[in-house]
Design a protein around this nucleic acid. Structure first.
Lengths: 134, 134
DNA sequence: CCCCGAAACGATAACAGGTTTCATTTTCGC
DNA sequence: GCGAAAATGAAACCTGTTATCGTTTCGGGG
C-alpha cells in the first residue's frame, strides 16, 4: 500500500481503511477519514477504494442498502471472507471450502468463478442472537 | 404464476419471462415482451419482476453492466444456479454443493446465508473457449 | 348489455449511487 | 524557490430504480 506521492489525504484514507474492522462503504470510509482530512471529498474516497481494489488491498463484498461495501484483504493466499449482512463483521475461511461446488460446476460444464465470491454473505453469532430472521 | 386478473400486459410479460433461457435484466424483459404488448411501460416490467421475485419464480443473479439481472427458478427444492457472467447462460446445481462451506462457516461462528447465493458467478464452456480471461 | 369499484397500468418526476469533468492545490525533482 | 506532473474536491452528469398520480382495464352484479 504505497501511498504514492505523500499526499496527506491519501495517508488519512489509508489509515482510516486500515482501521476498518468490518465491511465498509465508500461513504463510511469518507466519514472515518474526515477528521484527519477535513476537506476530503467523496470523489477521492472513491478513487482510493478503486486503487485498493486494483491492488488487492480490499475486495468487493456485495452491497448493503444499495451501497457497495468492501472488506480488507490482508491475506494473500486463496481464501474467502464471511461478511455478516447485518453488521458487516468479517471472518476468513482459509483454504477453499468451495472446492466441491467448483467440482460440481465443472461437471455441469461451467467454471465456477470463485474469485468473484471473495465475500460470502453470512450472519455472525451476535446478529443471529439479536434476532431478525432472514 | 397466476397472472391474477387477466391483464394482457401481465400475460405478455409472463410469456416473455418464461421464454427467457438466460439471465435477463428488466430492460431485456421489457424489450422481449414489447411485441406482444406494444404500450408496455418499463414501470410495469419492474413491478412484474418484483412480484416474481417475491413468489420465487425468479431470483436475483447479480448485476451486469450496472443492471440487476434475474434467472428463472423453476425448481422448488434446495439448489443453486450457475450463471455465466459473460453470456448469461444458466445451469442448475442440484443438492447443496455449498454444504462444506456452510460447515466451515459454522466453525468460524458464522451462519452461511446460502439462500443469498442462489446464483453463482461462472463461465460457461462456450465463453471459456471464446476467450477473454477472467 | 351496461355500470361500478377495485386493481393494474404507464408517463413522468423524483431519487440515489456512482462516475466524469475541470479548475485548483499539492507534491516532487531540480 | 520554480515548474511540471499528479492529486484533489466541488459540482455537473448519467443511469438504474422507485414513487406519484391520473387513466385504463378487468370482473361482477344488476
Amino acid at each position: 500500500m504505497d501511498p504514492g506521492r505523500n499526499h496527506r489525504t491519501r495517508a488519512a484514507l489509508l489509515d482510516a481503511g486500515r482501521a476498518m474492522s468490518r465491511a465498509f462503504s465508500v461513504r463510511e470510509l469518507h466519514a472515518a477519514a474526515l477528521p484527519k482530512a477535513p476537506r476530503l471529498g467523496l470523489t477521492t474516497a472513491y478513487r482510493a477504494v478503486e486503487r485498493w481494489r486494483d491492488t488487492g488491498f480490499v475486495e468487493p463484498a456485495g452491497t448493503r442498502d444499495g451501497e457497495a461495501v468492501y472488506v480488507l484483504c490482508g491475506a494473500a493466499g486463496h481464501h474467502h471472507h464471511l461478511v455478516c449482512v447485518r453488521c458487516g463483521a468479517t471472518s476468513v475461511l482459509e483454504g477453499c471450502a468451495l472446492e466441491p461446488a467448483r467440482a460440481a460446476s465443472a461437471a455441469a460444464g461451467f467454471e465456477l468463478l470463485d474469485r468473484q465470491l471473495g465475500a460470502l454473505p453470512a450472519r455472525c453469532g451476535d446478529c443471529a442472537e439479536a434476532g431478525a430472521d432472514g
